[in-house]
């Protein structure tokens, strides 16, 4: 359980994290979503006690990170895979970490096996590819067999094989009942891995909800229909007040009806006696949802979000703020 309350961090005049409050519940993957520069990494560093918040606090199971005894046994984190001495071997890197939290030496070999680095454990970490470095970082995070895991942009820069591996690995960790908090600016990635989302923009909380809820609430659903009597259908739909536009397809023109359900469109077609060749609901993507929400967070807050608004976030545009 991670609990952030009113977390604020300033760098000079730039506010990197602004009165951010959220909770990360145990036993599931929670995505930490926002564009580059939204304050995700800063928040992660504050969770780990590396950076000091200017206001607010963040607690791990009710305690500040700095008060945890042998914290690697409670929280494992991969913030940057490059935080390794390039001339130190992978095994030596894990050995000092294990020693620092009084973990048995055999645990080092266990996690190396777990991430598939046993064969290169004696090689200097500086010669590792990004994918291997990422695996070493994950091995370090798992060293203390922690209940809570933090990953900052774990798939950044990885090849498809590495991405698939990380994705499956995180699902496995969550299936084991751990709390997984993973940040990303890749919205499609979050849709595949995260059940819950904490969405931030310019350091402020935009939403905290389940991924499905986020997409449902935020993205406009539309319906695509194809019919030999397209003009009659269009007239009927416009008459009912729907917004319609024509979309050329391989099978001839189709109509895309905005803000409608397939039920509504099907019933209108039946009432008009129009033959349908296709009636398909178009799910909004997470990207669309994100763009829509962040371009007008005020509207979202009043419509769907349980987030306590502070009134200061009028018409936020998601311009990536500097560090």
């Amino acid at each position: 359980m991670i609990e952030a309350v009113g977390l604020t961090k300033r760098y000079g005049r730039t506010v990197a994290v602004d009165n951010l409050s959220f909770t990360v519940k145990p036993g599931r993957v929670t995505g930490f979503l926002g564009p580059n520069g939204a304050g995700k990494s800063t928040t992660m560093r504050m969770i780990l006690g590396l950076d000091r918040p200017d206001a607010g606090r963040v607690l791990i199971d009710g305690r500040p990170y700095r008060e945890l005894d042998r914290p690697l046994r409670t929280v494992g984190a991969l913030l940057d895979a490059k935080w390794v001495h390039p001339n130190r071997s992978a095994r030596a890197h894990l050995q000092w970490l294990a020693k620092s939290n009084a973990l048995p030496a055999r645990r080092v070999d266990e996690v190396l096996e777990l991430v598939g680095l046993s064969g290169v454990a004696g090689r200097r970490a500086g010669g590792f590819s990004l994918g291997m470095a990422q695996r070493l970082g994950i091995a370090a995070a798992l060293l203390g067999d922690p209940e809570i895991l933090l990953f900052d942009e774990p798939v950044n820069g990885l090849d498809p094989e590495g991405i698939l591996w990380i994705r499956q690995f995180m699902r496995r960790l969550a299936a084991e009942g751990r709390t997984v908090f993973v940040s990303s600016h890749l919205l499609s990635e979050m849709a595949l891995t995260a059940e819950d989302l904490v969405v931030v923009g310019r350091g402020r909380l935009i939403a905290q909800c389940s991924t499905a809820e986020f997409v449902d609430n935020a993205s406009e659903s539309s319906v695509r229909v194809r019919s030999p009597q397209l003009d009659r259908l269009r007239t009927a739909l416009l008459h009912k007040g729907f917004t319609v536009h024509t979309e050329p397809t391989a099978e001839g023109n189709a109509l895309v009806v905005s803000a409608a359900t397939s039920d509504q469109v099907g019933e209108i077609a039946a009432a008009q006696g129009v033959v349908l060749h296709e009636l398909s609901p178009q799910r909004g993507s997470l990207e669309e949802a994100f763009m829509q929400l962040t371009s007008d967070s005020v509207q979202y807050r009043t419509d769907v979000s349980p987030v306590a608004g502070d009134g200061a976030a009028q018409n936020d545009r998601l311009v990536p703020a500097g560090k």
Binding site: L48, L50, R66, L68, P71, L79, D80, W83, S100
Partner: peptide, 9 residues
């Protein structure tokens, strides 16, 4: 950072 993460003191 890894060090202070492992030993916050």
């Amino acid at each position: 950072r890894s060090t202070f993460q492992a030993v916050p003191n």
